[in-house]
């Protein structure tokens, strides 16, 4: 308490990543040529890294078998040079992944909350309906759900007709089909986490709320939900982390998110290994950011006696 703020390498790395991403997007979409580098042009020149890779390789060759570690170093420089060259081309994909995940998880939550409350407090029909929905969604593959929405319904046509879709910064219809599909899917999983949390809030809490004069709905809102959400946070973080990665399925319906963008680039350049290793590192950065944020939220909302409190 009250000590100097400790700066951890992870925090620095994540800060650099987000600084780069926002700088990149600002440069490419807002400044466009007026100030800064050209669109898609790296901030850091590739040449020195390529040169370093070449000299390290030459040195390794002259050292013979002992030069193996130097050869690895050369490989590292080569990867860095490739990465610096490709990163600007992946920035838009990262942004799409971020957007896809956050919008879907929020919409999913908005749907999951009533679903889970129906599961716990609803009448027989409501409980049954909510359970059926959850089981149907959790029991079928996300990719199949995505395909059904995209190919088998007229959702795409409908969305295409919505004014503003695909104009300027607003993504085109395929993105929104993915958002709808992921939201519907995530809602089922989230509602399951929330249901478990609401179930584990002691029933005496609602009784006490009712005895004070709150209606059942008010008791749920002011007493059960605040406690249940705190209990659900750790498992809810899982759902967010899963969704970051599952959002890559959107590439199958033409959305150029991180995975889609990487695939396209790889098929153009044949640099499959470097590009997908780079994509994996970028996904890791997103996932670690998500967990770090949720960790923050968890410690901010921690209340003694509600769930597990870290000492």
């Amino acid at each position: 308490m009250g000590s100097v703020v400790s700066v951890r390498p992870l925090t620095v790395g994540l800060a650099l990543f987000w600084l780069w991403l926002s700088g990149r997007l600002a440069n490419d979409f807002l400044l466009v040529g007026s100030v800064g580098v050209g669109r898609g042009e790296p901030f850091v020149p590739v040449a020195p890294f390529a040169a370093a890779a070449d000299s390290a390789a030459a040195l390794a060759a002259s050292l013979g078998p002992v030069g193996e570690p130097v050869l690895w170093l050369a490989g590292g420089f080569e990867f860095a040079a490739e990465a610096i060259g490709y990163l600007p081309l992946l920035a838009g994909g990262i942004w799409t992944t971020v957007l896809l995940t956050t919008v879907s998880v929020c919409l999913g939550f908005a749907l999951a909350l009533p679903l889970s409350l129906l599961r716990v407090y609803g009448g027989r029909t409501a409980r049954w309906a909510a359970l059926s929905y959850t089981e149907l969604i959790r029991g079928t593959p996300l990719l199949a759900q995505l395909f059904v929405l995209y190919f088998a319904t007229s959702l795409t046509q409908v969305l295409r007709g919505v004014p503003g879709v695909g104009v300027g910064f607003v993504p085109a219809q395929a993105f929104w089909v993915a958002v709808i599909s992921f939201s519907l899917n995530s809602a089922a999983y989230q509602s399951e986490y929330l249901r478990a949390a609401f179930d584990s809030v002691d029933s005496g809490q609602l009784t006490a709320a009712r005895a004070v004069g709150l209606s059942k709905l008010e008791g749920i809102r002011y007493v059960v939900v605040p406690q249940g959400l705190r209990l659900a946070l750790p498992s809810w973080t899982n759902e967010l982390v899963y969704l970051v990665k599952y959002s890559s399925l959107a590439s199958f319906i033409t959305v150029q998110e991180l995975f889609g963008r990487t695939s396209t680039l790889a098929s153009e350049t044949y640099q499959y290994t470097d590009l997908f290793v780079l994509a994996a590192v970028l996904y890791l950065a997103l996932v670690v950011t998500a967990s770090a944020l949720m960790d923050r939220v968890e410690s901010r909302t921690a209340t003694v006696g509600v769930g597990h409190t870290r000492q």
């Binding site: 002691d202 005895a211 406690q227």
Partner: peptide, 19 residues
């Protein structure tokens, strides 16, 4: 709810709002 405004209750297990 009108009735419960006028009748307070104290429980065996306290049932304080934990949060």
């Amino acid at each position: 709810n009108e009735l419960r405004k006028q009748v307070g209750m104290v429980f065996q297990d306290f049932n304080l709002f934990a949060h």
